[in-house]
Design a binder for these strands. Sequence first.
DNA 1: CGGAGTCAATGAACCGGTTCATCTGCGTTT
DNA 2: AAACGCAGATGAACCGGTTCATTGACTCCG
Lengths: 344, 344
Amino acid sequence: MPSHVPQSQTVKVKDVAREAGVAVGTVSRVLNDHPAVTRELRERVERAMAQLGYEVDVTAQSMRAGRSRLVACAIRDFDIPRFALFIKEAEAVLREAGYTLLLASTTNRPEVEIALLRAFRRRRVDGVMMTLSDEQHRDVRAALSEAPMPVLLIDRDRIDALDRVTADHREGARLATSHLLGLGHRRIAMLVGDLKAFPSRSRLEGFRAACAAAGIAPDPRLLRDDVLSSEDAYRATASLVSLAEPPTALFVAAMDTLGGCLRALRTMGLAVGDGISVVAGSDSDLAELYTPPITAIAWDLAAMGRHAATMLLERMRGDEIERGRGLTVPTELIIRGSSQPLAI
Amino acid sequence: MPSHVPQSQTVKVKDVAREAGVAVGTVSRVLNDHPAVTRELRERVERAMAQLGYEVDVTAQSMRAGRSRLVACAIRDFDIPRFALFIKEAEAVLREAGYTLLLASTTNRPEVEIALLRAFRRRRVDGVMMTLSDEQHRDVRAALSEAPMPVLLIDRDRIDALDRVTADHREGARLATSHLLGLGHRRIAMLVGDLKAFPSRSRLEGFRAACAAAGIAPDPRLLRDDVLSSEDAYRATASLVSLAEPPTALFVAAMDTLGGCLRALRTMGLAVGDGISVVAGSDSDLAELYTPPITAIAWDLAAMGRHAATMLLERMRGDEIERGRGLTVPTELIIRGSSQPLAI
DNA sequence: CGGAGTCAATGAACCGGTTCATCTGCGTTT
DNA sequence: AAACGCAGATGAACCGGTTCATTGACTCCG
């Protein structure tokens, strides 16, 4: 005999309690799998919940508990195909643990990063994973240190107090550069993103380390930083190959910008491989299937996503762990046909 | 003279009210830009808020208001590079309007879709945009019709009551097929995704319409459906070209699966262009820069994302609009070198 | 000059759960 | 038989905002 409940207005714990003939506290305990409920009452409550089509109100739970079971992920631009892998894996891990993912784009601007941190705390978000445009930015650092919830940095470092998941870009760039130097290249142009952030900074370090090891002083005119998009890479490539003394190799180290570089070369009537060697800073279908296939640095973004989520979960659980743990996934160089010995 | 407020525990409206010497209701009105507050009091309250470093608790607001200012986006798999564009634009529009984006992956399974809808209503999410694995699925349809918040379908149709944003895949496929037929191809293989969902269904319709218009009966053995990933495309391509009577053209209509197809061809020692023509169902850097460049169907996913967000905002605002509005972005065929006249 | 009308400001009740001090009933101990 | 212990159930208070009926001050007009 189903009691008549107005289907229009939502069913609340009170209604369930009345239907099951128990106190609201008991309904709450059933909802939260509290052990001190007899099987009989538990079943009666569950029956009542099914009967009435009850659904908890997570906002009410959040308010009382002071936490939302939300995890925010803010990255500079989702429009980076490989980042989708990171997010996908992180979301899967978080959902498994009962968390929901909030997504926002920082557009790589400090003000937005700060505003987002504020928005996240207003929402009582339980944890944050994010990129930063500049780890040294005063206001951003202040905002981070005031954040009441754990924050994990995605491919960023230099903030000791925070956990981070990074890729070993330094080693990747070192390998790529040594490879080109080994092929006889001396005029190697490098395209990197924003040097204020970890990935580009460490790629440049790796590049310089390889040059130093080979006893070579890189030509500063062949360095292009602030290459963040495919369009930037197009312009940088076009300007590089137009130099009086053009480079013999291009190291397109910025993420997902290979397309712009190749487009520029094609436009300028240049072919990769014989005239000019190319190494990509991140792997892709394009790198693999281009003619010739492009030598590229690869690392496991899916693993980064999983690790980021797992580390953040541990931190949110409040486990007693040392602050500022870092996890680095290795990079490897996949040598393909686009990097050829220097033609004499 | 800043009052001494225990920095440890959070500041609440009550504290702000006390500091400013006003009632809590007044603080709330200031927070919500209610017009009936004198400038003097408004300023006093704002000063107090700044003084105490006050931050509203959005969970408390959500609970009282019954809405969360969250919009959920659930798609089958974020690991589809071009979808990132959709999400990016949608997020920008929603954030502008004060909403935060929740993200989840349906993994293209009806149970997950239903579970997510339930999770979203529990969170008092204000609106949902999602893909469906199968528009005709009974339980999914039931879950959708019971959803208390507006739901917008992403590239899906057949549910009259819901708003939707689609691409004109039928026309794209028709154009591509006519193009191949015009080049003399008669044995055209088609790789599509799940025919239970709109995009693949309408691509197949377009394909068939073009064949019918040319008076040609397509060979059913050349159709491969359920191609959802690059790996699926690899297998489908390998099996197609191994047929006794292989196709002379491949229409890789499924989204972002071109890589798998090209990888298979390369493995089988086939070259695109002379031996076999290829048309891709979605454009990409790979299609544009491959040798030969791949003829592809293109449409504006960024615009789809913007429109989806805008339509959902209108609906959430409760505007009096007819139910089930549909917006279709056009598709175009970009003809490149991979589609060549049939060699005789 | 008094009554009606207007506009700000007030603060108690409310949103829908969870928590915890308190109570109940039953078995154990002495 | 009285005292005790304890598991299980109860329900009022609470989380931190918003809402709205009410109050108070002030203006306008006959």
